[in-house]
Design a protein around this nucleic acid. Structure first.
Lengths: 325, 325
DNA sequence: CTGAAAGCGCTTACAG
DNA sequence: CTGAAAGCGCTTACAG
């Protein structure tokens, strides 16, 4: 039985089958109060029976609205990003909006293409969960539809709302936690120059100074961690900029024969699935992911409702203490 | 500087700015040979300058084609699925098609919604990377646009093409590998009733019989693995139905004080990022992910080109031996 | 409650 | 090479 693809039925087909005008079908389908209950039910039944489905392109073209929210992420491989997407999706759905997702690796031009594609598709708003999208791409996109950035940009982009967590504070929570346990040689693994990485590094350094300790910042690549863990002067605790790199540190600790947390405490950031899977379970910093998704969608609808001033929302993270430190 | 959202420029605006008719702009934009080089360049420059972007809904409505491929996955959290998506995307892009992604957890109705949504959007084809989409939903979707299933369905769905790996063979590769190392008590952890799970279990059982060994199948939940690893009669090797569950087994082995692979060999399936991250690095079965994406898109374009008979492509997996067994 | 009509932004013959 | 016109499938006043 080969799939026979016939032209999909239109409003006109439904109208013909129901013996009414096509306007009436349209009205009935969207529950217009001017259509009697009996008529509406009859029309719905006919529509269902002929397999009618509205054409979103026709509707979007006519309405100028698509009820679509575009979400752009750099990478499907990063659990922090995909977990954010899920929360945006839940929030959008609650508002009657559908989400279309696009991802584009860390190549700026590919991400820019994706942003433009979603714009061409006619999304009513755009949520960007990637700090790799250039500011001018965001600005251009915002001329067509509101854009909200989940996460940090290097500096605020005029016209773009944002929601992110307070990375400095998150880093400080980690430092205080480790210092309170008596650690004095607390290293920070962070080679990132992205805004969040920079903020966490700054938070670490400030907090270390505040508790009277000396900062030690290292990068993962190429042998940063191995060198860090070698020799007698090694740290007793490592704070990594995110869970992925914390797992790398755990890996190196294992190689070096160090017990975690006895010989070395390890703390991550983001509280992703990796933290919950790691051995030992990773102490980490949790962002308010659910709230971030909800707020992102609220910021979008706020703009659609006419708000003109930029909003930058900063949420407080919290420390999740598990077995690793 | 609040983002001023003015109505986006249309073909008509470009035409006015360039002092030509709107048909000519349309022709020029799509590189019609009937437009002189000079005129084309001038029009492109004007379009660019006024910030013109074509409306995909208008184009789709007119053309009946969107140049969009929809991809549906159950979960963004499963690396096997997201890695497949990346390969589909690369293949689609090479054909000038764009990918829009939708995900919907394992709830059948939510997945069905997503499939319908993508259909409403007007995608030219659908790639389904989830065995949780009911057959009737696939069939309905296929009336609008070709559908290809990446992975297995319980039985072939008429009208739907598919590409998947030979799970029975993959399982047999694992059994033979372990048996060749002298293992005699090789257990299989697999509580899945999904098509792939069932096939891997069957492959395991058949291969065990072929090498003259007795099968031991256990489920992960709730304490299956812990019980399996306890006591003197425990297996010396465990083959898990996928990398995720193999990591669970590694976890339990650690709890039970077993050294891997000395006390217990562990093998997974899928060769995801989890396998490459696990300690010790996981021996696993690799599907031809790149080829799967490419073939999926080829099957789609084949249908669009008019092919009417169903194609079911089965690819050979291969064993990737790492440190765990 | 119902139907004829206009128009969203495009593409595509068709006539010059 | 150029322009007027029709039509994709919808929604939305508007007149009955």
């Amino acid at each position: 039985m080969p799939a026979v693809r016939r032209p999909r039925p239109t409003l006109l087909d439904v109208a013909a089958a129901a013996g009414v005008s096509k306007s009436l079908v349209s009205l009935a389908l969207r529950g217009d109060p001017g259509v009697s209950e009996r008529t509406r039910e009859r029309i719905l039944a006919v529509a269902d029976q002929v397999g009618y489905r509205p054409s979103l392109s026709a509707r979007t073209l006519k309405q100028g609205r698509s009820m679509l929210v575009g979400v752009v992420i750099s990478s499907l491989a990063n659990p922090y990003h995909t977990e954010i997407v899920a929360s945006v999706e839940d929030a959008a759905e609650a508002q009657g909006l559908s989400v279309v997702l696009a991802h584009g690796s860390r190549e700026r031009h590919r991400l820019a293409d994706r942003v433009q594609q979603l714009g061409d598709l006619g999304v009513d708003g755009l949520v960007v969960v990637s700090s790799w999208v250039p500011a001018e791409v965001l600005t251009t996109a915002a001329r067509r539809a509101p854009v909200v950035m989940v996460g940090r940009t290097a500096e605020p982009v005029p016209g773009i709302d944002s929601v992110n967590n307070d990375d400095e504070h998150g880093a400080a929570l980690v430092v205080r936690h480790l210092a309170a346990q008596g650690h004095e040689r607390i290293a920070h693994v962070n080679g990132s120059r992205r805004p969040a990485g920079t903020a966490r590094r700054r938070g670490y350094e400030d907090a270390m100074a505040a508790v009277g300790l000396e900062s030690h910042v290292r990068t993962v690549e190429p042998d940063g961690v191995a060198e860090l863990l070698a020799g007698p002067g090694r740290p007793t605790a490592v704070f990594a900029r995110n869970d992925v790199e914390a797992c790398d540190v755990l890996d190196h600790a294992l190689d070096a024969g160090l017990a975690v947390p006895a010989d070395l405490a390890v703390v991550g950031y983001d509280d992703t699935m990796l933290a919950r899977r790691a051995r030992p379970r990773l102490t980490t910093v949790q962002q308010q992911r659910e709230v971030m998704g909800t707020r992102a969608v609220e910021l979008l609808t706020g703009r659609l409702g006419g708000r003109a001033d930029d909003v930058h929302e900063v949420l407080e993270p919290r420390l999740v203490v598990r077995a690793s430190g």
